[in-house]
Nucleic acid binder design. Structure first.
Lengths: 234, 234
DNA sequence: ACTTGATTCAAACAGGCGTTTGAAACGTCC
DNA sequence: GGACGTTTCAAACGCCTGTTTGAATCAAGT
C-alpha cells in the first residue's frame, strides 16, 4: 500500500540504481516492440529486477512508459545538442550543418539509437508524452531551422512560407528514418551506401533547398556553385 | 480439423459474404490499433460473426492480418489509380498532377482512409506483407515519378540522382501523412487549413522541385514562372 | 426423408498479461 | 540489540488473449 513517495536518497545513482536500469530497459523494449507488445516481465528480466519493481517505482505500465520516453528524450538532448556557430558563419554552411546534424541524430550510426526509435513511435502515433516532446525537443530545433532559412532568404519569404520550406527539409530526412526499409527496396542496393548515406543525403537535401531558394544554381547545372560542402564542423 | 479448403461458391458475394465482412472489419481494427492491440473478438463483433469464424476462414490471426493488408491494398488501387495524361501534356503539369494525386491518396479527404493507415503501418514497421505491397503498389508509382522527372531534366541528371530527387518529393508528402499531428503542433492553427492543405501542398512541393531543378525561377522571386498550376485533371 | 458436407455458434481451453500480496532481506537509526 | 522504514522477492490473482472443440444449423443432392 505504501506507494513509494520518497526522493531517491542515493545521489550518486550509478548504473546500479534499479530505477535507472528499469527506465533504460523499458525504453529499449518499448522502442523495439511498441507499447502493447512490450511486456513488463521482459523489461524486468532485462533490467535484472523483480516484476513487482515496476509497480513499486512507477505505479503502473503507462506511467513507466511516459517516464521512459522522457528519459530517452533527455538522454538524446544531452548526446546531440543543437549546433552552435561562430558569429560570421555563412548561412549556407549553417543549413548544411543543421541538416547533417539532424540526419546524424535520426539515422545516427553512433550507437544503436533506440532512443530515436522510441521518440519516432511517439511522433507517428502520439500519446500523452508527445506534446512535451514537441515543446522541449522538436520545436526548438525547428525554430533554429527556420531562422537559418530566414538568414538565407532575407525578407523574400514570409514566416509561414519559411515554415513550409522547413517542413520540406525535415520531410526528406524523416522519410529515410521512418520508411528506411522501403527506401532500401526501391533503390538499388549499391546506391544506399553511397548516394543515400547520411553524409551524401545532407549534401543532397542542402543543395536541393539552396537551389530551390535561388542561393545556388539549379541541380544538374555545370557549376555547382560555391561553399555548400567545403568543410563541416567535425 | 477440416480447414476450409474450398473456393467460395457464392460468386455474387455481396456485403453479405462473411469472409469479406471479416476482412473489412479486420482492416479497420488493425489500422486503428495495430496488430497486437487489435483483438479477434473486437473484429468479429464489428463483422457480426462468431469468434471461431476467423479460424475457420483464415486459420489464425497472422494470416488474417496479411490477407487484410492485401485486401486494403487492392481496394486502394481500384479507388485511386495512377494518373494518365494526354500525349502532349507538359511535364511540369504531369509533376503537379502526380504530387496532387499522391497527396490526395495519402491525406485523402474522400473517405476515412483506414486503408492508407493500415498500409502506412506496414511501411513504418514492415512485416511479411510489405514486400508484396512495395512491388505491386509503391514501385510502379515511384517509377512514374522518376519518368516524369526524367522528362523534366532531359539527360542532365542520371537515374540514381533522379531517384534521390524522387525521394525528396515523396518525403515531403510522407511527413504530412505520418507525422501530421506533430506538424499541426509546430504550425499555427490558422495555417494548417490553408498553406498546408493538400492542394496548397501540391503547389508548394511542385514549385519547390521545379525551382530546384531550374525549370522555373526560385521561390520568392517576383515572377513565379508559368504553368505550374494552370488546371488539374479533376 | 435421409445423407452429406459446409457453415455457425456457445462454451471452454491453455497461456500470457498487468497487477497485487505478504513476507523476507536490508540498512540505519536510537 | 531491537525497532523501523525501505527495498526485494516468489507466488498468486483476475482478466483477457488466440485458439479449439463438438454440437447445432443450414442447404442442397439423391
Amino acid at each position: 500500500m505504501v506507494v513509494a513517495r520518497h526522493a531517491r536518497q542515493s545521489p550518486p545513482a550509478g548504473a546500479e540504481d534499479p530505477r535507472e536500469r528499469i527506465l533504460s530497459a523499458a525504453g529499449r523494449e518499448f522502442a523495439e516492440h511498441g507499447y502493447d507488445a512490450a511486456t513488463i516481465r521482459d523489461i524486468c528480466l532485462a533490467a535484472g529486477v523483480n516484476v513487482a519493481a515496476v509497480n513499486y517505482y512507477f505505479g503502473d505500465k503507462q506511467r513507466l512508459y511516459i517516464e521512459s520516453v522522457k528519459h530517452a528524450h533527455q538522454d538524446r538532448v544531452r548526446q546531440v545538442p543543437l549546433p552552435e556557430w561562430q558569429p560570421g558563419t555563412r548561412p549556407e554552411q549553417k543549413l548544411h550543418d543543421f541538416v547533417a546534424n539532424m540526419l546524424e541524430r535520426m539515422l545516427g550510426l553512433g550507437q544503436p539509437p533506440w532512443q530515436v526509435r522510441l521518440m519516432m513511435r511517439e511522433v507517428l502515433q502520439p500519446t500523452e508524452a508527445c506534446r512535451e516532446l514537441v515543446e522541449d525537443y522538436i520545436r526548438p530545433h525547428f525554430a533554429v531551422l527556420v531562422s537559418v532559412l530566414r538568414e538565407l532568404t532575407g525578407d523574400r519569404l514570409g514566416e509561414p512560407e519559411l515554415r513550409r520550406v522547413g517542413m520540406s527539409i525535415v520531410g526528406q530526412c524523416f522519410l529515410y528514418r521512418a520508411a528506411g526499409q522501403v527506401v532500401g527496396m526501391l533503390v538499388p542496393q549499391s546506391e544506399i551506401g553511397t548516394l543515400h548515406s547520411p553524409a551524401a543525403l545532407a549534401d543532397h537535401v542542402t543543395a536541393y533547398a539552396l537551389a530551390a531558394l535561388g542561393v545556388v544554381s539549379p541541380l544538374g547545372t555545370p557549376s555547382p556553385a560555391r561553399s555548400t560542402r567545403k568543410d563541416s564542423l567535425t
